[in-house]
């Protein structure tokens, strides 16, 4: 994920100080974990240098505030509407499967079984999280988890298909 566009998104909503950006970015990242504070300040420096972000001064508690510049808004909008190509994150798995299939059918079966086990485990953990998000009313994170689950379902269907063909 790009910290640059995360910051531009948050600043397009309102002026923020650095720590506020960190908290909001963690929330925006959702499932992917937390962000390193150092990364925020180095990115902010670069955004100011490139004219995407300005600093209108300090807030009441002497913290530096940041704001988006019109050039930053244009950059953000351009990025937002650009479609994202399907990134084949399972590339390693497909490569490994191709190798296993070429070398040894027993190993192929075993690797598919183990991959399936891993997927089911992730499905169960994510579904558990999903039900909690439904009850908390956190629609944004719920939809993100739903998206991941649909990908996992596709992977599982593919493995079942391969297994049935392997016989």
């Amino acid at each position: 994920m790009s910290v640059k566009y995360g910051i531009l998104t948050l600043l397009s909503v309102k002026q923020c100080h650095g720590y506020e950006l960190k908290i909001e970015l963690d929330s925006l990242l959702g499932l992917k974990g937390k962000i390193n504070p150092g990364q925020i300040y180095t990115t902010l420096d670069r955004l100011i240098r490139d004219g995407f972000v300005t600093s209108p001064g300090m807030d009441g508690e002497d913290r530096r505030l940041y704001d988006i510049h019109i050039k930053g808004k244009e950059e953000l909008n351009k990025w937002l509407i650009e479609p994202v190509a399907y990134s084949n994150t399972k590339e390693d798995f497909f490569f490994k499967w191709s190798c296993a299939r070429k070398t040894n059918s027993e190993l192929e079966k075993l690797m598919l079984t183990q991959q399936k086990e891993l997927i089911v485990k992730e499905v169960m953990e994510l579904t558990k999280l999903k039900t909690e998000l439904i009850l908390e009313g956190d629609e944004r994170r719920y939809l993100l988890v739903t998206g991941t689950l649909l990908h996992l379902e596709a992977d599982l269907t593919w493995i079942n298909q391969v297994e049935n063909r392997v016989g």
């Binding site: 183990q114 086990e117 997927i119 089911v120 485990k121």
Partner: peptide
């Protein structure tokens, strides 16, 4: 929980 389910399904 998740681990056992995975084991059962496999």
């Amino acid at each position: 929980y998740a681990k056992y389910m995975a084991h059962f399904m496999a």
